[in-house]
């Protein structure tokens, strides 16, 4: 389980998550939504976390920045940033980290902006909190940021309210806020899901360019494998709260191993010609993602959805196996996996 940690033990990673467990309370019982996840994020790297809804990918992100209600959540493990374990911080210390060291971009840009504040004030808010700039310097910084994220006519937009901007522009403002204090880490939770494809392409290009410019480490959470293929350096695939496969983006798309990853890739309608026979049905993963309280806690969690694979093929306590350098796959069922109806 600590494979990720060992490889980079020589040099300190930007963010090191060890055995993170996040449990939510449902009827006085705690259920793990994120179950023993270990990950590292390096400088100047885009780490994508992929999974369907309910896989725990957003919970993982919100646990790192401490956005959970402490009364109903139990968080175990550690998230090491510099010399701090983020998971042990009190609210006061956390507020210093959030925005300053870790920037966040959420899915819904309208929901993450205050409708009663001008764009200028929203961006300046982070600067007031984290820097000692005076008001003139702040305004200059706001203009600079708006420019950086490609907003036309910053002096005008600065005075506008969120509802006056289009979805793509709003998301750019959110990115500007995330960038305002030059954080070394940015967590982007489905940053383009609410946007049109052309706008999505623009925002992704922008994120990528900014990342190359500033050397930020980005954790990109998404369900869209296309976005992953365009953006990520490294990918972790999550299913039912666990990481089932972790590899570089190249390796993952060219040589996917885990049955879940392979099924997901197979169920995607393709636009490029050679890859799809369109008269054929899309691949369907049997069953559904289990709900938190009904989730299987022992053995291979994906097993119920590939019932044609014999029980012996699964490990009793599935662990991550290194199948190629830096390519990890959970459970042994990948070795004998074949799609239903096809031979091995």
């Amino acid at each position: 389980m600590f494979l990720g940690g060992i490889i980079l033990a020589v040099e300190r990673s930007l963010l090191e998550i060890n055995h993170l467990e996040t449990a939510f309370r449902i009827n006085d019982q705690y259920y793990n939504a994120v179950d023993d996840v270990s990950l590292t994020l390096e400088n100047n790297e885009i780490l994508a976390i992929v999974g369907e809804s309910g896989s725990g990918k957003s919970t993982l992100a919100t646990s790192i920045v401490g956005l959970h209600d402490p009364l109903n959540t139990q968080i175990k493990g550690e998230a090491l940033y510099k010399d701090l374990n983020l998971l042990n911080l009190n609210e006061q210390l956390y507020n210093r980290i959030r925005g300053n060291d870790i920037g966040m971009i959420f899915q819904d840009p309208l929901g993450s902006l205050n409708p009663l504040m001008t764009i200028h004030d929203q961006i300046a808010e982070a600067l007031i909190y984290h820097t000692k700039l005076d008001s003139e310097a702040r305004t200059n910084r706001v203009l600079e940021l708006l420019n950086q994220v490609g907003i036309p006519n910053p002096p005008r937009v600065m005075k506008q309210y969120p509802h006056e901007l289009s979805g793509g522009m709003r998301q750019r403002v959110v990115i500007a806020i995330a960038l305002s204090c030059k954080p070394p880490i940015i967590i982007a939770d489905e940053p383009t899901t609410a946007l049109d494809v052309t706008i999505q392409a623009q925002i992704l290009d922008l994120l990528k360019d900014l990342q190359e410019e500033t050397g930020t480490g980005i954790i990109l959470i998404t369900h869209d494998l296309g976005v992953v293929a365009e953006m990520a350096d490294r990918v972790a695939v999550m299913y039912a709260g666990e990481i089932v496969e972790e590899a570089t983006a190249l390796e993952l798309f060219e040589n996917p191993m885990h049955p879940y990853t392979r099924s997901l890739l197979n169920s995607m309608p393709q636009t490029s010609d050679e890859l799809e026979d369109e008269t054929k049905d899309l691949h369907v993963i049997q069953g559904t993602v289990p709900s938190l309280s009904k989730m299987k806690r022992s053995g291979c969690r994906f097993a119920p959805r590939i019932p044609w694979i014999a029980d012996e093929e699964h490990e009793e306590n599935p662990t991550l196996h290194e199948v190629a350098p830096n390519h990890f796959v959970r459970c042994t069922c990948y070795k004998h996996f074949h799609f239903e109806g096809e031979g091995e």
């Binding site: 494809v197 052309t198 999505q200 392409a201 992704l204 290009d205 869209d224 494998l225 296309g226 976005v227 293929a229 365009e230 990520a232 983006a249 190249l250 798309f253 060219e254 890739l265 995607m268 393709q270 636009t271 490029s272 890859l275």
Partner: peptide, 19 residues
Amino acid sequence: KRLLSAIPDINPRDREQHK
């Protein structure tokens, strides 16, 4: 053309070219 080129490409090897 613009719409088609904006679809993310599933092959990370062509990333730069696609961009």
